[in-house]
Every structure is written in C-alpha cells, then in structure tokens.
C-alpha cells in the first residue's frame, strides 16, 4: 500500500505499510518563501499525532511541523542541513523531512487525499 495524504497544517505523508515519509506541501513552501534552515528531529524520538516534530525557517517566519500520525522518527533528511532550499525546489519528493514508523494505521484514514487537499487550500 502506497499512498500520499495531507493535513490541514500543510504536511504531506507518504505511507509505505510499515513506515512513512513526511514533508511540507508545495503550497506551504510557496507561502514560506526561501527556506533558510530546518531544525530536524532526533532519530528515535517518539511523537504523537499533532505534536511538534521539526521547525522550518525562512528569513521572517518560523513554522512548526507537526506529526501527521503517531510513530517514531526512524531517519531524517540530512541533506537539508546543507541545502535547505531543497524544500523550495522539490518539497514533495526530495524535500522529505523525516521518516517515521506507523503506530496506528487508523489515523491515516482521517487525513485528506490529494483532491480534498486541493479543495482545502482553495477554500483556505
């Protein structure tokens, strides 16, 4: 099962059975402008759904990135340390921020799919 879901806080999550990748949406990166720094979580951090996991900074804004589902941080995207601008150029692929385990797959069904998210950002 591979699927991409979205949150109201503009995170995307790509689920691959046991684990998932998380990042921010292209819409969110455009709102932020040039990303200058990402504060990555520590590997092994347990996070509950809705909890702050990372912080992404542009020159005049700092945005918290929340866990779309509960689980443990398994890996972080180290390449963002040197090139935070990957978030701007490729937010929804190479701009992934962390990889996490899936604690409760039931939480996934509450998230938006692509078309629901597209409608959401138009309304928002």
């Amino acid at each position: 099962m591979k699927e991409i879901k979205y949150t109201k806080d503009h995170e995307w999550i790509k689920i691959d059975d046991e684990y998932a990748y998380v990042g921010i949406t292209d819409f969110a990166q455009k709102q932020l402008g040039d990303v200058v720094f990402i504060q990555l979580p520590e590997i092994g951090t347990d996070c509950t759904i809705g909890e702050e996991v990372a912080v992404i900074e542009s020159v005049k804004a700092a945005s918290e990135i929340y866990a779309p589902i509960s689980g443990q941080v398994l890996e972080v995207n180290e390449s963002l340390n040197d090139s935070p601008d990957i978030i701007n150029s490729d937010a929804e692929n190479n701009g992934w921020i962390w990889k996490m385990s899936v604690k409760d797959s039931g939480q996934i069904s509450d998230l938006m799919d692509k078309s629901a998210y597209s409608n959401f950002i138009i309304e928002d």
């Binding site: 709102q31 040039d34 700092a62 945005s63």
Partner: peptide
C-alpha cells in the same frame, strides 16, 4: 504547519 511570521517573505534574488 503553524507559521509565525512578522512579514511576508523577502523577495530575494534567487541567483
């Protein structure tokens, strides 16, 4: 994502 910002992002020259 919860943004706290003072200003719109600075329109910087990408190059």
């Amino acid at each position: 994502m919860n943004s706290r910002s003072r200003a719109h992002s600075f329109k910087s020259d990408r190059n």
